[in-house]
Design a protein around this nucleic acid. Structure first.
Length: 282
DNA sequence: CACGAGACCTGTTCGC
DNA sequence: TGCGAACAGGTCTCGT
């Protein structure tokens, strides 16, 4: 499910709390319960529990699609993958079917990792870089410029859509926001990345930020049976709008499979350009 | 290096 | 109405 804007939304909720749920910053972890063994990537559960209990949640942040909780001696990393969610609930609340890991906190509340499809993972590490691997730049970070993006596009000959969702290219973009970004930037999903001009790269850079920021502003996208409170699904321009009119030109939105992922685009707003082979250029 | 297929999972929706 | 197939916001690994 969650891409950058959804993870950012969850981080905000955990930091600030809501009318019904307290913020969890500053709270100590008092207990842990593992309900689906494989969701804990590292360390073993006994060590996890022993290291975790007594530590206080000092900071909550995001890197790409990773949710990160800083503790005094460790960092707890959570990746929600397709169907994961984090809920703050009363200790007395019933344990829902898809709860996979529960952390008890001070004050009678708990943090529950819920994940129907069991793809999500949790790590407790000292150095998050060991888990992040070669994660690309944060698209909303001011240090990520259009020129950076242009250089990265030039360094590859891959199709732009699979490249955008490659986490080592830029961090945090998934299927929904990639399709939305390409439509906003008026670029065909199959366009080879190295054929983009600098001004097209600038446009892509701008579109990527516009779309991600709007997603965050609307508290993310809530689709399928997983409701998270966001309403960006009501403002999608192409994603899951196959056959419906393009909001810009009225042409029916088309769907194709690219890199095994459903890809939605407007054939008129996002034309595939006639490319002149390099060898034939004067 | 780039791409495709398959695996990991469960739940919902689609098509006959 | 019922049932199997297809599909879903992600990522890893393996083979070509």
């Amino acid at each position: 499910m969650p891409e950058l804007p959804e993870v950012e939304t969850i981080a905000n909720l955990l930091r600030q709390g809501t009318e019904s749920q307290p913020a969890i910053i500053g709270k100590k972890i008092t207990g842990a319960r593992l309900l689906w063994e494989r969701c804990l990537a590292t360390p073993t559960f006994p060590e996890f529990k022993q290291r975790l209990i007594g530590q206080e949640i000092q900071k909550i942040w995001r890197r790409g699609k990773f949710l990160c909780l800083s503790l005094p001696s460790d960092i707890l990393l959570i990746h929600l993958r397709m169907s994961g969610d984090l809920l703050v609930e009363l200790e007395s609340a019933p344990v829902l079917t898809h709860h996979r890991l529960i952390l008890n906190l001070e004050g009678g509340v708990r943090l529950a990792f819920n994940d129907a499809r069991k793809f999500g993972r949790v790590w407790l590490v000292v150095d998050p870089a060991t888990v992040f691997g070669d994660l690309g730049p944060e698209p909303l970070d001011p240090s990520f410029t259009a020129l950076d993006l242009f250089h990265r596009l030039q360094a590859s000959r891959r199709q732009i859509k699979p490249l955008l969702i490659d986490q080592s290219f830029v961090a945090g973009v998934g299927n929904i926001y990639a399709d939305e970004t390409l439509h906003h930037a008026k670029l065909h999903p199959l366009r080879p990345s190295h054929t983009l001009t600098f001004s097209q790269a600038e446009r892509l850079h701008h579109s990527l930020r516009q779309v991600l920021e709007e997603g965050i502003r609307r508290n993310g996208t809530s689709i399928d049976w997983v409701y998270r409170g966001g309403d960006f699904q009501n403002y999608l321009r192409v994603y899951q709008r196959t056959g419906e009119p393009c909001l810009v030109c009225g042409t029916p939105i088309q769907k194709m499979i690219v890199g095994q992922r459903g890809t939605h685009f407007c054939p008129v707003c996002q034309p595939y350009p006639v490319l002149i082979p390099e060898a034939h250029r004067s």
